[in-house]
Amino acid sequence: MTVLPKDIPGDSLKVTVGTANGKPGDTVTVPVTFADVAKMKNVGTCNFYLGYDASLLEVVSVDAGPIVKNAAVNFSSSASNGTISFLFLDNTITDELITADGVFANIKFKLKSVTAKTTTPVTFKDGGAFGDGTMSKIASVTKTNGSVTIDP
């Protein structure tokens, strides 16, 4: 049996954390987006972790974005102690894959008090994996961190 590389060099799934701005007490939304989904033969499963400074940001909610089908079954998240974990699994293993680019999740943060303008990162942590529509590992994932700026 011969195994051929399935990824064209330079191609990767792009996962990007967005940015937001606000004043202390505001609730802002930071999107997590996927790009080049079709090039990577869709997404059938993924789990990953984001870190944030809990002294500056309070997670209000984490909701599935419009590219997630049947989110009540296929999407899960949790947030505590400065870490947000995400889990997606197409429970049907074929019919509810992520097949389009767009917003995977929206994180709502309540901004805490600061004395001066502060930009705090929302960054990928170690761990996690992504699988394509056949549940094979997506070897190349380009992750881009985001941030939230609090301006009193």
Rank of each mutant, 00 (worst) to 15 (best):
M1V: 13
L4F: 13
L4W: 13
K6A: 10
D7S: 11
G10K: 10
D11R: 11
D11T: 11
D11N: 14
S12V: 11
L13D: 05
T16Y: 07
T16H: 10
V17M: 06
G18E: 08
T19K: 11
T19V: 13
A20C: 13
N21Y: 11
K23L: 10
P24I: 13
T27M: 13
T27Y: 11
T27I: 11
T29D: 14
T29S: 11
V30N: 09
V30A: 10
P31D: 13
P31G: 11
V32Y: 06
T33F: 09
T33E: 10
F34H: 06
F34D: 06
F34P: 02
A35I: 11
A38H: 11
K39L: 13
M40L: 08
K41A: 10
K41E: 08
K41N: 10
K41D: 13
N42I: 10
V43G: 10
G44V: 12
T45I: 01
C46W: 05
N47A: 01
N47L: 01
F48S: 06
F48V: 04
Y49E: 02
Y49P: 00
Y49C: 05
L50Q: 08
G51Y: 11
G51A: 10
Y52I: 08
Y52F: 14
A54D: 11
A54S: 11
S55N: 12
L56G: 12
L56R: 10
L56Y: 09
E58Y: 08
E58Q: 10
V59T: 08
V59C: 08
V62S: 05
V62M: 11
D63T: 14
D63W: 11
A64E: 08
G65C: 08
G65H: 11
V68C: 10
N70G: 13
N70I: 04
A71N: 12
A71M: 09
A72V: 14
A72N: 15
V73L: 07
V73S: 05
F75S: 04
S76F: 09
S76Q: 04
S78Y: 15
A79C: 15
A79E: 15
A79T: 15
A79P: 05
S80I: 15
S80R: 15
N81I: 15
N81G: 15
N81K: 15
T83I: 15
T83L: 04
T83D: 07
I84K: 02
I84N: 02
F88Y: 04
F88Q: 00
F88K: 00
D90I: 01
D90K: 02
D90L: 00
N91A: 01
N91H: 07
N91Q: 05
N91L: 04
N91M: 15
T92S: 01
I93C: 02
I93W: 14
D95A: 06
L97P: 15
I98C: 08
A100C: 05
A100N: 07
A100W: 07
V103C: 06
V103Q: 05
F104L: 03
A105P: 01
N106L: 06
N106E: 03
K108V: 05
K108G: 04
K110W: 00
L111K: 04
K112S: 03
K112V: 04
S113V: 06
S113F: 03
V114E: 05
T115D: 07
A116S: 07
A116Q: 05
T120P: 06
T120Y: 04
P121L: 07
V122S: 06
V122W: 01
V122Y: 02
T123R: 14
F124V: 04
F124D: 02
K125C: 02
K125R: 09
D126L: 15
D126K: 15
D126G: 15
G127C: 04
G127F: 00
G127L: 02
G128H: 03
A129F: 00
F130E: 02
G131Q: 00
G131D: 03
D132E: 04
D132R: 03
G133I: 01
G133M: 04
T134D: 01
M135L: 03
K137L: 00
K137H: 01
I138F: 04
I138E: 01
S140E: 01
S140I: 15
S140N: 05
S140R: 13
S140L: 08
T142K: 09
K143H: 01
K143L: 02
T144V: 05
N145W: 03
G146H: 05
G146Y: 06
S147P: 04
S147V: 06
S147C: 05
V148S: 07
I150V: 14
D151N: 15
D151Y: 15
D151G: 15
P152H: 14
P152G: 15
P152Q: 14
